[in-house]
Design a protein around this nucleic acid. Sequence first.
DNA 1: CGAAACGTTGATAAGTTTCAACCATCGTGG
DNA 2: CCACGATGGTTGAAACTTATCAACGTTTCG
Lengths: 250, 250
Amino acid sequence: MPQPPQPRCPPNCHACGLRDFAAFTELPAGALDAINRARSHTTVGRAGSTLIRENQANSQLYTLYSGWAFRYSTLKDGRRQILNFLLPGDLMGLQQEFGDDAAHGVELLTDCALCVFKGDSLWELYREHPRLGYDITWLAAHEEGNVDDNLLTAGRRNALERVAMLLLQLYRRLDRLGLAEGGSIEFPLTQQHIADALGLSLVHTNKTLRRLVHLGLHTIEDGRLSILNPRALARIAEYYDQPPRLLPLL
Amino acid sequence: MPQPPQPRCPPNCHACGLRDFAAFTELPAGALDAINRARSHTTVGRAGSTLIRENQANSQLYTLYSGWAFRYSTLKDGRRQILNFLLPGDLMGLQQEFGDDAAHGVELLTDCALCVFKGDSLWELYREHPRLGYDITWLAAHEEGNVDDNLLTAGRRNALERVAMLLLQLYRRLDRLGLAEGGSIEFPLTQQHIADALGLSLVHTNKTLRRLVHLGLHTIEDGRLSILNPRALARIAEYYDQPPRLLPLL
DNA sequence: CGAAACGTTGATAAGTTTCAACCATCGTGG
DNA sequence: CCACGATGGTTGAAACTTATCAACGTTTCG
């Protein structure tokens, strides 16, 4: 699957291409400078590579600038659960930063551009710009909300509802970032990823996807997902639109 | 099921009975005063009552002082997923504070004593004591870690593993708070709660519990859970002890 | 050309849910 | 005081959803 080249993160945050999107909040003067100082460097990662290994503590803190990634954890016999997907603007490595117990891994789904923060810059940022601390808590709470949704999905929705949920969820997140075009988005997931995100087997995921295609609700072709009937998908998943909110961006 | 009377939260944080536990971090001077000022009042809630309604925005921020509660969300037809359990020291209402989308509800499992914070005190706290902001982020990230675990459980563990996981998880959390006595803890959950937390049906939950009892791994009697074979439970759940960490307390 | 990755499909097996009872305990009101 | 309803737990049987197994097709790439 050929990846489109990912735009590289500019060396200075003032030139940040992400911040131009309408989806993100404005920052008070000075805060952007502080972020720029807290940043160690920018880098890129290859699709399929492991950015943060499971149970690895003291990793670095990242902002995903472009591309897709996901958080996951696995059991010893190989069963894997994808916890949530990470899209541009998402913070990665926060739990590792807090030295938390049994932390998840992070793997890149596509080639990605990343902002890397200095190892000890987080506390500095809180101290000098409490507003940024507030924003980071917001991001953490928001991500937890995503995981909450995924837990409801894995625990209480059936296979058809789960798949509908995932497709719609991803479409909406991309759309909010301005990355949807005419009802379709880039879609780098394999069916194995979908299965691992939903707690289903690969085979059953395949059959369920085909069922939705057969119902005319979506298609996945050439690495793009097209949502053909958002209303029907929303009804199946019981997942209705929320008013878009501005996201903090670090 | 008779509830033991819950100790009431003292009117001044300096007399906080929770903070005496070895499980919580020390606070820098001044921070405790700030918390005390940010606190609106203390209150109690009855077992079974709804503290935060689903999709309710702008609720208040609470610290659970004593008792058990849980976060949940439901589908329209009544299917309910318990997202995680809340124990003394846990913060409640943080996501609502950020006006987050489709927020969960919070229901009390036992009579509870609560600290209630003033509506707009959170930002104040961040501004005056960035360290507390840091701690709150820590708590949020830590809670997300719990939800991550629960998602792995619901998505990838079978029924026996799920139940073993839950029993052990709750035992360990209580133990860390100093609330375990001789291998047993207070246990106010019904089998319906367990089922809703694990994404299982009530009947299958019952049969799985009986299976574990029959294996001699645990008992639940008179509202107490006794862990009879922690090693075996850990092996089944593939859930091993993490070094205990000090928790921030707000 | 062959291997590897990903998707598709049918048949069978297993795990889980649903349905339908029944029991025990407990609090309450007649 | 006892009858009663409500709540929570237990159990067997049948139905259904999902997993597993096995095979095959397509595309890509070295």
